[in-house]
Nucleic acid binder design. Structure first.
Length: 421
DNA sequence: TCTGGGGTCCTAGGACCC
DNA sequence: TCTGGGGTCCTAGGACCC
């Protein structure tokens, strides 16, 4: 009976996924790449992985996340191109504008994909399939980029069907046909099922979504807990729990901001390592200021030569967005946890427990903090103009780490938001 | 094969409080 | 002295996504 109380009209969700997005954008800047095997992400002899591969390159087994050197072996004739994140952000915004002009309920799920809630738009755009073709055409006309569109009664169905529609296609799963559509697909096609979950399921003899759907819900819950329960719903095409259940277009605030760097060659040189931490701290601080966020938790990430990785975090009594404070905390964590001599492959700095300006008590903000903020804003502008390397605050890039006279740039005791009140 | 960089979410244990 | 349990915060690690 409970089912009768649920809203019965099905939603119409579009999932728009750009085809080989990074490759397609690069082709706009260098048309000679068209039709070739192209690998975006770095050069063939570099440490790193493939960000995107053209369909030509995919024929040779190249795919994203594959090490570049492996890609070079599989597809020696491929053209290797460095990635240009600014370009992708710029074109992502153009994509967003096309979508926004088409429907007010749009949500970018990542740089190259979006969900649209098209429920109730039949009078404006016609039935789903017609609307999707209209949008598909408009996207091509206005951005020169191909996309694929999946249409379904849930985000999950829309997402899975856009993958099946690729490349450059449209696929509508008619309401009521969800289970039939999913049954023959590999469990791996379900968003959230990765390598590990797939192998757990394979051990149970579950290879296809249909196998999963036949299992008792209670058994999945027993074996995999909360996740198992959600999985049972997903096997039927439902947006079971978590982010998938949220309304399309409900905007979500960032939870963390981070930067990390992998060295071309591992290093155990303390001044080089701390210089990197300084640079990463500045990048994180800058992003915080741009977004007007203050962070209370700062985290160091340390990956050694053998790929073992640790993270160490510290939560401050008062939040910050200042490079100096971030660096000070992260450097302390580094000095406490790095064993001198051990070769480091990667360093990372992350800020979390983000608060808006409201979380700040500005009453006591004397001239001191304001001057620091002004100085940093100026530095940010200079970096915009002349590049990241153009401005370094005390402490510098290379070696000389004068102990900064520990100015607490905020000039404040822990007077903003203490732990428990 | 030799493994990027930016994120989100979940789990689990310990500290601490009531 | 032995023994509670719930709630929240914090930390560390891991799976997963693009």
């Amino acid at each position: 009976m409970a089912a009768a109380l649920q809203p019965v009209f099905p939603r119409t969700i579009f999932h728009v996924d750009m085809d080989a997005f990074f490759v397609s954008v690069e082709e706009l800047y260098d048309p000679s790449l068209k039709g070739k095997a192209v690998v975006v992400g770095g050069q063939r002899d570099e440490r790193g992985v493939v960000s995107a591969a053209s369909y030509e390159a995919r024929k040779f087994g190249v795919h994203s996340a594959l090490p570049l050197r492996t890609a070079a072996k599989l597809c020696p004739h491929a053209t290797f191109v460095d990635g240009h994140p600014e370009r992708y952000r710029e074109w992502s915004e153009k994509v967003f504008k096309v979508l926004q002009a088409f429907s007010p309920q749009v949500e970018m799920a990542s740089i190259d994909e979006a969900y649209l809630d098209m429920t109730g738009t039949a009078r404006l755009h016609g039935p789903p399939l017609l609307a999707a073709h209209k949008l598909h055409r408009r996207m091509k006309d206005e951005t020169c980029l191909n996309c694929s569109i999946g249409i379904g009664s849930s985000r999950l169905i829309a997402k899975v069907s856009s993958a099946q529609a690729k490349p450059n296609g449209v696929l509508w799963i008619v309401p009521g046909e969800e289970s039939k559509f999913l049954a023959p697909l590999d469990v791996r096609e379900i968003p959230g099922v990765g390598k590990v979950m797939e192998s757990h399921l394979h051990k149970l003899g579950i290879k296809k979504v249909g196998d999963l759907a036949r299992l008792e819900e209670s058994e999945l819950e027993e074996r995999f807990g909360k996740w198992g329960l959600a999985l049972a719903g997903k096997a039927r095409g439902e947006d079971a729990g978590g982010w998938f259940d949220s309304e399309v277009g409900a905007d979500t605030e960032a939870k963390s901001i981070s930067h990390e760097h992998t060295y071309n060659e591992d290093t155990a040189d303390p001044s080089q390592l701390e210089a990197t931490l300084m640079r990463l701290s500045e990048m994180v601080g800058r992003r915080l200021r741009e977004a007007n966020f203050y962070a209370r938790t700062l985290q160091l990430k340390l990956r050694y030569k053998d790929f073992t990785t640790i993270t160490r975090a510290h939560t401050l009594p008062a939040s910050t967005q200042l490079d100096g404070e971030i660096f000070e905390q992260v450097r302390a964590l580094f000095r406490k946890n790095w064993k001198p001599g051990r070769q480091v492959r990667l360093l990372g700095v992350q800020a979390s427990s983000l608060e808006g300006e409201a979380g700040q008590i500005n009453l006591l903000e004397g001239g001191r903090q304001q001057r620091w903020k002004d100085a940093l804003a100026t530095a940010d502008r200079l970096r915009d103009k002349f590049g990241e390397a153009s401005v370094k605050l005390a402490g510098g890039m290379n070696g000389t780490f004068r102990e900064r006279t520990h100015e607490n740039p905020a000039g404040l005791p822990g007077n903003r938001k203490t732990k428990r009140e």
